[in-house]
């Protein structure tokens, strides 16, 4: 199915097509119930085939039964770009260098509004865009080692992570943070405690059961 009708099928899809409306169309929908004005949103893939989702001017979403639609007037188009604003991480020579090594997990994900699932999101720019006060603490660099959920971490990833830690220490960073899924974080921590001994810099593992875009 084309992106112009993302998530729509059956009755709802044919109603949209009948009136030349697409996802992101700015429309006025006339129904047996009355009129609704807003933007056609993509429909969740798990939802039924009988309703069209509109974002009203007030910001609320409503579903309108395709069957009750009498006319749709397309007035324009407003496409949404869901993206954390990427900003370049500022450098302050007075602050310590900290490296964030990403392995995956919920802590490095954000919500996908269409499916309701969390999807990976991780770059220094994105992190700075969403947590700007990080710049008050350190000069942050990030490196994405892996993008796996923690149940998929194994010997290969443990070795790779330990080697990455070694490289960073040699480069002179003053602290290392490892983002990790919570399910097996304690396994990785235990393994790393054997692999990396007498580290001259603190190494912290972090995880969360909430994606970072929850308020």
């Amino acid at each position: 199915m084309s992106d112009n009708y993302r998530g729509y099928r059956g009755e709802a899809l044919s109603t949209l097509k009948e009136y030349d409306a697409q996802v992101w169309s700015d429309v006025e929908v006339r129904t047996e119930q009355g009129s609704f004005t807003g933007i056609v949103l993509p429909r969740s893939e798990t939802a039924d085939a009988y309703h069209i989702v509109l974002k009203l001017r007030s910001g609320y979403n409503v579903g309108i039964a395709a069957r009750s639609v009498q006319a749709i007037a397309v007035q324009g188009r407003k496409e949404a770009h869901y993206k954390i604003p990427e900003k370049e991480f500022p450098f302050d020579p007075k602050k310590p260098r900290v490296k964030l090594l990403g392995t995956g997990g919920t802590i490095a994900s954000r919500l996908d509004y269409r499916t309701g699932a969390v999807i990976p999101a991780f770059s220094p720019g994105e992190l700075y865009g969403s947590v700007p006060e990080l710049a008050d603490l350190c000069n942050l660099e990030t490196e994405k080692l892996y993008g796996v959920f923690s149940e998929n971490m194994g010997p290969e990833q443990w070795i790779g992570t330990a080697q990455a830690i070694g490289r960073e220490i040699e480069k002179g960073v003053q602290g290392i943070v490892i983002g990790h899924g919570t399910d097996t974080m304690h396994h990785t921590a235990a393994i790393l405690s054997f692999m990396v001994q007498e580290s001259p810099v603190p190494i912290v593992m972090v995880g969360s059961q909430r994606s970072s875009d929850r308020p």
Binding site: V53, G59, N61, V62, G63, A65
Partner: peptide, 16 residues
């Protein structure tokens, strides 16, 4: 006498 919504969508309204 409202036009009633056919399918209700719960929204999150931010209150920080």
């Amino acid at each position: 006498g409202c036009s009633m919504v056919d399918e209700i969508h719960i929204a999150r309204k931010q209150y920080l």
